[in-house]
């Protein structure tokens, strides 16, 4: 608090309220962070979005701040400063009085609370403990993911069809069977969308650096004008895997090309 400020009772308590507010905010933010990271661990196990835990944490913060603020400032100050409980209580109840003794009381209170700041109102040990908990919880999902090959995909809302929100087909199977599906495909081989890359042609340019690859030339195969060399590379591959010197006839190559075209759903 400002040592040089006037000792008017209302101003004194206004300053005190501000200090208490700062303390409360920091405390509740730490609580909300603990809640967020704790929920996030659970959501990570169930492979759900962190936004759910963020929403709960924000709601928690708002509710706690509202409830705490309703609790009178004087009670909060008493809790944090039990040694000045009686003087605070008396001063708070007599802030509208203007007798010499009340002024003296406020003067005393101001001197006593001159060292009170948001920092002094907080228990450093408690804050430090909470920060440690937050840090631990923040890193826990990383550990869980690294040690858990199979992440659980679950719909926490039961029978309600919110599974479509995730847009994954395997979830229906999950509900139909035992309630929990182990998605080996995604866990072991990554996201299924990666498979789509198989339809794309990719020109990889080897640069002089040797270890540098340029993917700038990546272009969708369908967008590029077709060239003979695009099809049938399968025939070429077969030819390459054959014994050295073995050559296919043009008729065989034509047959393979036609087969390849059929496989790709083109005219055959």
């Amino acid at each position: 608090m400002d040592r040089n400020s006037s000792f008017g009772p209302k101003r004194l308590f206004r300053e005190l309220k501000w200090e208490v507010f700062k303390t409360m905010l920091l405390n509740e933010i730490l609580n909300a962070a603990i809640l967020f990271f704790a929920l996030n661990i659970i959501l990570t196990v169930f492979n759900m979005s962190y936004l759910y835990s963020a929403a709960v944490a924000v709601l928690f913060l708002v509710v706690r701040m509202t409830r705490s603020w309703r609790k009178s400032t004087i009670r909060r100050l008493e809790e944090t400063n039990p040694e000045v409980h009686e003087i605070l209580r008396t001063a708070y109840e007599h802030q509208s009085h203007n007798s010499l003794m009340v002024q003296g009381l406020m003067f005393d209170l101001q001197k006593r609370l001159s060292t009170v700041s948001a920092g002094a109102l907080l228990s450093a040990r408690r804050v430090f403990s909470k920060v440690l908990v937050v840090m631990f919880l923040a890193f826990t999902p990383v550990l869980i993911i690294s040690f858990t090959p199979y992440l659980i995909q679950a719909n926490p809302l039961g029978d309600m069809d919110f599974g479509s929100l995730w847009g994954e087909g395997g979830r229906e199977a999950f509900f139909e069977s035992i309630g929990v599906e182990l998605n080996r495909t995604e866990a072991n081989y990554g996201d299924a969308r990666v498979l789509d890359l198989g339809d794309q042609a990719m020109d990889v340019e080897l640069l002089t650096g040797g270890n540098m690859l340029s993917f700038d030339q990546t272009q969708d195969a369908q967008e590029r004008p077709r060239r003979f060399s695009d099809f049938p590379f399968e025939a070429e591959a077969v030819e390459a895997e054959s014994a050295p010197g073995a050559r296919y006839d043009d008729s065989d190559i034509a047959l393979i090309n036609r087969y390849s075209s059929c496989v790709r759903g083109q005219d055959c």
């Binding site: 009686e86 209580r89 008396t90 001063a91 109840e93 007599h94 009085h97 007798s99 010499l100 003794m101 009340v102 009381l105």
Partner: peptide, 12 residues
């Protein structure tokens, strides 16, 4: 007079 002015909290 000052004695009577000494403030006292309600809970006391």
């Amino acid at each position: 007079k000052l004695t009577r002015q000494v403030p006292i909290a309600d809970d006391i």
